[in-house]
Protein backbone atom coordinates (compact mmCIF):
# COMPACT_ATOMS: atom_id res chain seq x y z
CA UNK A 1 0.00 0.00 0.00
CA UNK A 2 2.83 2.39 0.95
CA UNK A 3 4.38 1.63 -2.43
CA UNK A 4 1.25 2.57 -4.36
CA UNK A 5 0.83 5.81 -2.41
CA UNK A 6 4.50 6.77 -2.87
CA UNK A 7 4.51 6.13 -6.61
CA UNK A 8 1.17 7.74 -7.42
CA UNK A 9 1.89 10.67 -5.11
CA UNK A 10 5.21 11.28 -6.82
CA UNK A 11 3.61 10.91 -10.23
CA UNK A 12 0.87 13.40 -9.33
CA UNK A 13 3.32 16.06 -8.19
CA UNK A 14 5.67 15.61 -11.16
CA UNK A 15 2.81 15.51 -13.66
CA UNK A 16 1.25 18.77 -12.40
CA UNK A 17 4.65 20.49 -12.41
CA UNK A 18 5.36 19.23 -15.92
CA UNK A 19 1.94 20.30 -17.27
CA UNK A 20 2.37 23.79 -15.84
CA UNK A 21 5.77 24.16 -17.47
CA UNK A 22 4.95 22.74 -20.88
CA UNK A 23 2.09 20.69 -22.27
CA UNK A 24 4.10 19.80 -25.35
CA UNK A 25 6.97 18.31 -23.37
CA UNK A 26 4.57 16.40 -21.12
CA UNK A 27 3.04 14.83 -24.19
CA UNK A 28 6.48 13.85 -25.37
CA UNK A 29 7.20 12.22 -21.99
CA UNK A 30 4.05 10.10 -22.38
CA UNK A 31 5.19 9.06 -25.83
CA UNK A 32 8.56 7.94 -24.45
CA UNK A 33 6.79 6.05 -21.66
CA UNK A 34 4.46 4.27 -24.09
CA UNK A 35 7.28 3.24 -26.37
CA UNK A 36 9.38 1.94 -23.49
CA UNK A 37 6.42 0.03 -22.07
CA UNK A 38 5.73 -1.64 -25.40
CA UNK A 39 9.37 -2.65 -25.68
CA UNK A 40 9.45 -4.09 -22.17
CA UNK A 41 6.10 -5.89 -22.37
CA UNK A 42 7.38 -9.28 -23.64
CA UNK A 43 10.09 -9.60 -20.99
CA UNK A 44 7.62 -8.38 -18.38
CA UNK A 45 5.16 -11.13 -19.28
CA UNK A 46 7.96 -13.71 -19.33
CA UNK A 47 9.09 -12.74 -15.85
CA UNK A 48 5.49 -12.90 -14.59
CA UNK A 49 5.11 -16.41 -15.93
CA UNK A 50 8.44 -17.64 -14.55
CA UNK A 51 7.74 -16.13 -11.13
CA UNK A 52 4.41 -17.95 -11.05
CA UNK A 53 5.98 -21.24 -12.12
CA UNK A 54 8.83 -21.15 -9.60
CA UNK A 55 6.56 -20.14 -6.71
CA UNK A 56 3.96 -22.70 -7.73
CA UNK A 57 6.54 -25.49 -7.67
CA UNK A 58 8.68 -24.25 -4.76
CA UNK A 59 6.05 -23.62 -2.11
CA UNK A 60 7.16 -22.64 1.42
CA UNK A 61 6.48 -26.26 2.47
CA UNK A 62 8.70 -27.65 -0.30
CA UNK A 63 11.48 -25.21 0.60
CA UNK A 64 11.37 -26.14 4.28
CA UNK A 65 11.49 -29.84 3.48
CA UNK A 66 14.49 -29.25 1.18
CA UNK A 67 16.43 -26.91 3.45
CA UNK A 68 15.27 -27.90 6.92
CA UNK A 69 15.93 -31.62 6.59
CA UNK A 70 19.66 -31.46 7.17
CA UNK A 71 21.83 -28.81 8.74
CA UNK A 72 25.05 -29.43 6.80
CA UNK A 73 26.92 -27.76 4.00
CA UNK A 74 24.56 -29.19 1.36
CA UNK A 75 21.61 -27.45 2.99
CA UNK A 76 23.45 -24.10 2.82
CA UNK A 77 24.26 -24.49 -0.88
CA UNK A 78 20.72 -25.63 -1.61
CA UNK A 79 19.32 -22.63 0.28
CA UNK A 80 21.61 -20.31 -1.70
CA UNK A 81 20.50 -21.79 -5.03
CA UNK A 82 16.80 -21.61 -4.13
CA UNK A 83 17.28 -18.01 -2.96
CA UNK A 84 19.09 -17.07 -6.15
CA UNK A 85 16.45 -18.50 -8.45
CA UNK A 86 13.21 -17.48 -6.78
CA UNK A 87 11.55 -14.14 -6.22
CA UNK A 88 9.68 -14.51 -2.95
CA UNK A 89 7.85 -11.54 -1.42
CA UNK A 90 9.48 -10.48 1.88
CA UNK A 91 6.22 -11.06 3.78
CA UNK A 92 6.53 -14.75 2.88
CA UNK A 93 10.32 -15.13 2.87
CA UNK A 94 11.18 -13.72 6.30
CA UNK A 95 8.58 -15.66 8.31
CA UNK A 96 9.72 -18.79 6.44
CA UNK A 97 13.35 -18.05 7.25
CA UNK A 98 12.45 -17.40 10.89
CA UNK A 99 10.60 -20.68 11.27
CA UNK A 100 13.42 -22.61 9.54
CA UNK A 101 15.89 -21.08 11.97
CA UNK A 102 13.78 -22.14 14.95
CA UNK A 103 13.36 -25.64 13.57
CA UNK A 104 17.11 -26.23 13.45
CA UNK A 105 18.56 -24.74 10.26
CA UNK A 106 21.91 -22.98 10.81
CA UNK A 107 22.39 -19.21 10.69
CA UNK A 108 24.67 -19.72 7.68
CA UNK A 109 21.94 -21.54 5.76
CA UNK A 110 19.33 -18.90 6.57
CA UNK A 111 21.72 -16.04 5.69
CA UNK A 112 22.58 -17.76 2.41
CA UNK A 113 18.88 -18.03 1.58
CA UNK A 114 18.09 -14.40 2.45
CA UNK A 115 21.19 -12.81 0.89
CA UNK A 116 20.93 -14.67 -2.41
CA UNK A 117 17.19 -14.03 -2.46
CA UNK A 118 17.70 -10.28 -2.36
CA UNK A 119 21.00 -9.99 -4.27
CA UNK A 120 20.53 -12.44 -7.14
CA UNK A 121 17.51 -12.60 -9.42
CA UNK A 122 17.48 -15.41 -11.94
CA UNK A 123 13.77 -15.13 -12.69
CA UNK A 124 13.95 -11.39 -13.27
CA UNK A 125 17.01 -11.76 -15.53
CA UNK A 126 15.02 -11.49 -18.81
CA UNK A 127 13.93 -7.97 -17.79
CA UNK A 128 17.36 -7.04 -16.53
CA UNK A 129 18.99 -8.18 -19.78
CA UNK A 130 16.43 -6.25 -21.83
CA UNK A 131 17.08 -3.03 -19.88
CA UNK A 132 20.76 -3.26 -18.98
CA UNK A 133 22.34 -5.79 -21.34
CA UNK A 134 23.75 -9.31 -21.09
CA UNK A 135 27.08 -8.43 -19.64
CA UNK A 136 25.80 -6.17 -16.86
CA UNK A 137 23.19 -8.76 -15.82
CA UNK A 138 25.63 -11.66 -15.84
CA UNK A 139 28.26 -9.74 -13.87
CA UNK A 140 25.84 -8.29 -11.33
CA UNK A 141 24.19 -11.61 -10.59
CA UNK A 142 27.31 -13.78 -10.51
CA UNK A 143 29.30 -11.31 -8.38
CA UNK A 144 26.18 -10.88 -6.24
CA UNK A 145 26.03 -14.65 -5.72
CA UNK A 146 29.68 -14.79 -4.62
CA UNK A 147 29.16 -11.79 -2.33
CA UNK A 148 26.01 -13.37 -0.87
CA UNK A 149 27.84 -16.61 -0.05
CA UNK A 150 30.68 -14.65 1.55
CA UNK A 151 28.22 -12.67 3.67
CA UNK A 152 26.49 -15.90 4.71
CA UNK A 153 29.85 -17.38 5.71
CA UNK A 154 30.76 -14.35 7.83
CA UNK A 155 27.32 -14.25 9.45
CA UNK A 156 27.44 -17.95 10.20
CA UNK A 157 30.82 -17.51 11.87
CA UNK A 158 29.81 -14.45 13.89
CA UNK A 159 26.27 -15.28 15.04
Amino acid sequence: MATIITIYGLLGICLVASLIKSREKTKKAFKIAGKALFKTAPSLLTVLGIVGLTLGILTPETISSLVGAEAGFTATILAAVIGAITLIPSLVAFPLAGSLLRSGATVMTISAFITTLVMVGVVTAPMEIKALGNKFTLLRNSLGFIAALTIAGIMGALL
Binding site: T3, I4, I7, Y8, L10, L11, C14, L15, K28, A29, F30, K31, I32, A33, G34, A36, L37, T40, L44, L48, G49, V51, G52, L53, L55, G56, I57
Partner: peptide
Amino acid sequence: SSLVTLDYFKEMALIIPPVFILMG
Protein backbone atom coordinates in the same frame (compact mmCIF):
# COMPACT_ATOMS: atom_id res chain seq x y z
CA SER B 1 1.29 -21.02 -10.38
CA SER B 2 -1.57 -19.30 -12.18
CA LEU B 3 -2.79 -17.71 -8.97
CA VAL B 4 0.70 -16.37 -8.19
CA THR B 5 1.07 -15.04 -11.73
CA LEU B 6 -2.34 -13.39 -11.52
CA ASP B 7 -1.37 -11.79 -8.20
CA TYR B 8 1.83 -10.38 -9.63
CA PHE B 9 0.02 -9.26 -12.76
CA LYS B 10 -2.37 -7.17 -10.67
CA GLU B 11 0.57 -5.61 -8.85
CA MET B 12 2.40 -4.87 -12.10
CA ALA B 13 -0.69 -3.40 -13.75
CA LEU B 14 -0.91 -0.94 -10.88
CA ILE B 15 2.78 -0.07 -10.56
CA ILE B 16 4.25 -0.25 -14.06
CA PRO B 17 2.27 2.55 -15.82
CA PRO B 18 3.07 5.33 -13.30
CA VAL B 19 6.71 4.22 -13.15
CA PHE B 20 7.10 4.41 -16.91
CA ILE B 21 5.44 7.83 -17.05
CA LEU B 22 7.79 9.06 -14.30
CA MET B 23 10.67 7.72 -16.37
CA GLY B 24 9.41 9.57 -19.43
